[in-house]
Amino acid sequence: MLTLNRRAVVALGLAAALSSAAPVMAQSDYPNKPITLVVSYAAGGGTDAIARLFAARLEQALGGRVIVENRPGAAANIGTEVVAGAEPDGYTLLIGNQGPMVVNPHLFDLPADPAEALDPIAMIADAALVVVVGPKLPVPTLGELVDAAKAQQLVFGSAGNASASHLASVLFGQTAGIDIRHVPYQGAGPAVNDLVGGHIDFMVTTIPSVIGLVQDGTLTALAVTGSARFAQLPDVPTAQEAGVDGYTASAWYGLLGPKGLPEDVRQRLANATAEVLSDPAFTDKLANDGGVPSTLVGADFAAYMAQERARWGEVVAAAGISVE
């Protein structure tokens, strides 16, 4: 099965079309046809941008076509379902992020549990969030934000219900012991707009959505939610440093496949991902977008997801966030 003539390929294709379950076998010549990289969001979002940059570089690393396919819908659960139901041959992969991978299992009755139906290949990037205030509440430190919130209930905006921005804010409230009011927006853009316009008090949002306004002084960044400071905002402390103990939150992206990937294919993909993540041409763009390349692979990535899932499950339960 090393070389096939055209007619054989056609015949094989027809056979595969007729018998819907083609056998999965170890493929030393992987990849020998285009790989579909499923993105659970519509074209044009943040995850989509990362996926497209990643796919373009992954093509070089694998030496084959990688086609991004947007399968949005049902709070990003459609993408999970599609990949979980695909043949585990390495030709259908998923860009997973924490929403559908570790938060949604707490919110929805999912037909495919990502922890069981998917094989984690490698984590791609981790992007910390930032706590920002605008002209409505011009406090200089995170401690004063907490004090202000204790004096009067504050209003925060988020990129949407159960978004990373929403959950990170809720976790902030829980950790700091303050009661805050949530205003959901459709995406970070409109929410930041209302923060700048002085209509809401604060936000916990992705770094790229506000970094320009922070550098300019229009908004004040009080803390980053990662475990380390962010290179382009060196003066902004971590939440830990700013006095809110144990508060970390980040948005992450990873590469996953359907459960049961052949070991050689999984290894090949993990190596290719590592190659992409060691290329400054890719990581520079990632850094510009607020992301830090990850080194978690396979079982370590799975363990990280399990830990995140437990953590956000507590946040969701304590805040009473639900869709029913």
Binding site: V10, G13, L14, A16, A17, K33, P34, T36, I67
Partner: peptide
């Protein structure tokens, strides 16, 4: 295009 013929 034609998954049964060219695989995508």
């Amino acid at each position: 295009v034609a998954p049964w013929l060219i695989g995508f």
